[in-house]
Each structure stands twice: as structure tokens, then as C-alpha cells.
């Protein structure tokens, strides 16, 4: 058996767009941190460009996007597009917010790996990140 050292998973939690509802983003950030991940929280009002740059600079494994304004169909795919352009689409991107089912299908088609809606637990999100980001050296 080879020795594998597990590294801490690095996650960027981001609030794209003008939406100021940060309860979910903050709760998720704290839950991830408590679950042993390294969390970077962007704060409010980030453009997709700022989020993509921060993710690359911080060398994160995953990005969590939170949006409750209804602008997710523009903002989330735009982040994916920018990551792809910069060759960073190995980063797992997931989202959360007030998002209708119909849009969830389209977001998944655009490369968003998972979408969590009101009622989802932090446990589910942690499980999702752990399953989808395997970090060993």
C-alpha cells in the first residue's frame, strides 16, 4: 500500500452579482471550515471575472457560488466560461440559492456540478465536496 497524505481541501465561497443575502454563504463557509477544509470567502458583490481570478490565484479545488437574486442563469455559467478559458475547469463548481428545478438542469449542462436549494443541509454540501474533490499526494 502506498502512503497517501490527505491534503486539506481548499474551497472558495463566492457571492456573484449584486445580491447581498449572505446568510447561506456564511453558514456554508463556517461549516466547511468546521469540517476541516480551508475556506476563502470572497465577500459580497463579486463579478464572475473576480471570482475566476480569485479561484485560480488561491489554487482552490472547488468553488461554491451563492445567489438569491434570480441572476444565477447569467452569473453561474459565466464563471464556468471564464474558468474554461483560463484552463481551470478542473475546479469543481457548485451553487446554492433560490433556484428553480428547470434552471438546475440547465446549470448542470453548463458545468455546474451540483445545486443546493433552500432546505439543503451543510452536511450534504460537505459530502458532495469530499466525494467530488479527491485530494491526495
Amino acid at each position: 500500500m502506498t502512503t497517501q497524505v490527505e491534503q486539506k481541501i481548499r474551497v472558495l465561497i463566492a457571492k456573484p452579482g449584486l445580491d447581498g443575502h449572505d446568510r447561506g454563504a456564511k453558514v456554508i463557509a463556517r461549516a466547511f471550515r468546521d469540517a476541516g477544509m480551508e475556506v476563502i470567502y470572497t465577500g459580497l458583490r463579486q463579478t464572475p471575472e473576480m471570482i475566476a481570478s480569485a479561484a485560480i490565484q488561491e489554487d482552490v479545488d472547488a468553488i461554491g457560488l451563492s445567489c438569491l437574486s434570480g441572476a444565477h442563469m447569467y452569473l453561474f455559467p459565466r464563471v464556468m466560461e471564464l474558468l474554461r478559458e483560463r484552463g481551470a475547469d478542473d475546479i469543481v463548481v457548485f451553487g446554492g440559492g433560490t433556484i428553480p428545478d428547470e434552471d438546475i438542469q440547465k446549470l448542470k449542462a453548463a458545468g455546474i456540478a451540483a445545486v443546493f436549494t433552500p432546505g439543503a443541509t451543510t452536511g450534504e454540501a460537505i459530502e458532495f465536496v469530499r466525494t467530488n474533490v479527491r485530494k491526495t499526494v
Binding site: 452579482g17 449584486l18 458583490r45 434570480g70 441572476a71 442563469m73 447569467y74 452569473l75
Partner: peptide, 11 residues
């Protein structure tokens, strides 16, 4: 405004 992209009339 550029910051308004995708948000107009949404909420």
C-alpha cells in the same frame, strides 16, 4: 451598468 448584467427585473 456592467454590474447590472443578468439582474435587471429579476427580483
Amino acid at each position: 451598468h456592467p454590474f447590472a448584467a443578468g439582474e435587471v427585473g429579476k427580483c
